[in-house]
Design a protein around this nucleic acid. Structure first.
Lengths: 341, 341
DNA sequence: CTGAAAGCGCTTACAG
DNA sequence: CTGAAAGCGCTTACAG
């Protein structure tokens, strides 16, 4: 007997039950056949698939998530979409996850702890199967949300056992040190470090810069020029002018990101500042276009695509409950020497 | 009486019922208080909120979606993450949707009809509240999926009533025509159109280019150089060399995207080709960096952020069942004359 | 290999 | 303003 009409809430969608009826089997069999679970008799399975296709059945992932308490959603939290670095990271994550049947929910934190918490809170409601977050520095509340959720989580762009859990990245500090060393090796002694955005990774690169100078006995010549503004080519131009005005004897600049360095190279071109003769310029990340600059930009190639790919692979293992041999994966970096320094 | 132990499947999460018990009210009251629905007595509401906070309750959106047959997910389909254009569009969409309580599921179609269909199929299972898709050209199957789902959908980057529904964008054809006219106005007569990727919008810009030439009686001098490769600065460099080799009398090039034009400008600098004296260069989209080039790039500023913002606003109206006054919103474009042409 | 029953955690639709 | 009952569309955990 149907329940009274006023009790019904049918949504008009084609459901498992409809497919089952059309195929002449039970709903459970449809569920199993469509998920490819266990052995369902080939003949039944065929009938089910035919019926599903004929009816245009689309499974309801909310119902599935509720019943199975597991979903195919992976949350990815990155700071900004305006930094190509994160877009490429995201792209690599997607390329690994989508073919495996996962969907990604992307949250932009704008380098803001409060926004990260809000994003976490709103995304965790979807019971994601996994989580990828940027870096290791976050608020206690955000950390508590992640841990309390029990959802497997991989941190990217920094490696470190201190924060526990799982991480994929490289040492920002060592990379900052290596590119500074490159400038020192080419004879530069008045090296400025110019940074924008001032996120934790940018500051770590600055520590590497300081360490390289200190190692050469140049601790007195540490010259950091910092701006909290977001990184951009236009800002790179402005920062170049500022450095040369404030410290005219500067013979090299290490920019914390390639967009700044690209802007500075173009500004140098306009201003007639010879690079690298008068001023050496180095960047960080090897972003698109850096190899096209005039002169081509010396920089640090960072493995963000590999980071994204490996983080996704690691997360998939965790989501399947498989063991992870290397919970903290250091993918390294590479100094790319081109003509600008 | 509890059901037999072997029947239980509790997930260990804090549920509505737990909050209700802690607050000493019924689950429905908790549901209403937390959603801010109707008038719940202020005192009860306070007790509920306190209990929810104390227990760290996170609502289950799968259960909510199942029970209410409505979700807070919005699906956004874009072709590529490697084109800054789409990243900015996406960013604008997110900025509008997230504060309103929606979450976005992003699908990358790679300009592939099959991938678009697959993305649609997998995302529609989540019963999204709304859909934003790029352009109007898609497979019949994809169109059928969208229409069959009944989910409100806004198309972006092209405007047109032909395809019905809702759209926000501008005329790619008119924009292509306008920038070509700019080159003609500055006295150029041997103008090449260089395009990559060859998506529908790129081809429409090419039509505008042809129309402008034809209008000046220069139909015989239409010179299109097309590459199906993805757009990039390096490709712009290669295309510049190819054009000047194949048609040495070319005095202007209109590139379908600024990344190509930027690459060409840098190549010209390396090769000693005077821009704009020997060769005028125009781009499209006014991407970051175009104003920093040497010389600065003449281009068409396209309103992708406004497109994203307005599409999100329109979609929110549709999702709330409100009427939309202008179902096809043309946001125009602007020719930005700088030094390169 | 297949199925009937129960349950996932919410909200709807009534009733009071 | 508040609540008891039913149901959303699946899957789990058994049983056969």
């Amino acid at each position: 007997m149907p329940s009274p009409a006023h009790r019904r809430r049918a949504t008009g969608r084609v459901t498992l039950a409809d497919v089952a009826q059309a195929a002449g089997v039970s709903p459970i069999t449809v569920s199993r056949a469509l998920r490819g679970e266990r052995a369902v008799a080939a003949e039944l399975s065929d009938r089910v698939h035919a019926a599903a296709a004929a009816l245009g059945y689309v499974p309801d992932s909310a119902a599935r998530a509720l019943a199975s308490s597991r979903s195919s959603l992976v949350v990815v939290l990155i700071p900004k979409l305006s930094n190509t670095l994160f877009v490429e990271l995201l792209d690599a994550v997607q390329n690994a996850l989508v073919p495996a049947g996962y969907q990604t929910l992307i949250g932009i934190t704008h380098y803001d702890a409060g926004k990260e918490e809000a994003a976490l809170r709103s995304f965790l409601a979807h019971r994601p199967a996994g989580l990828i977050v940027t870096g290791s520095h976050r608020s206690p509340a955000a950390t508590a949300l992640i841990e309390g959720s029990g959802v497997p989580c991989v941190r990217v762009m920094e490696v470190g056992e201190e924060a526990g859990g799982y991480s994929v990245g490289f040492s920002q500090r060592d990379a900052g040190r290596a590119i500074t060393q490159q400038l020192l090796d080419s004879g530069r002694r008045r090296i400025a470090y110019v940074a924008a955005q001032l996120d934790p990774r940018t500051l770590e690169r600055g520590e590497g810069y300081e360490a390289a100078l200190a190692h050469m006995g140049l601790a007195d010549h540490v010259h950091k020029v910092l701006s909290a503004e977001p990184s951009s080519m236009a800002l790179g131009c402005a920062m170049l002018e500022r450095v040369l005005r404030e410290a005219p004897d500067t013979d090299a600049i290490f920019f914390c990101n390639d967009d700044l360095a690209q802007g500075a190279l173009l500004a140098a071109l306009r201003l007639g500042i010879a690079v690298p003769e008068r001023l050496a310029v180095a960047g960080f990340n090897d972003l698109p276009g850096s190899d096209q600059m005039v002169p081509p930009l010396t920089t640090v190639a960072t493995p963000r695509r590999e980071v994204g790919e490996q983080a996704a692979q690691m997360l998939m293992k965790l989501m399947r409950g498989e063991p992870v041999q290397t919970p903290h994966l250091d993918l390294g970096f590479r100094v790319v020497r081109r003509a600008s320094a």
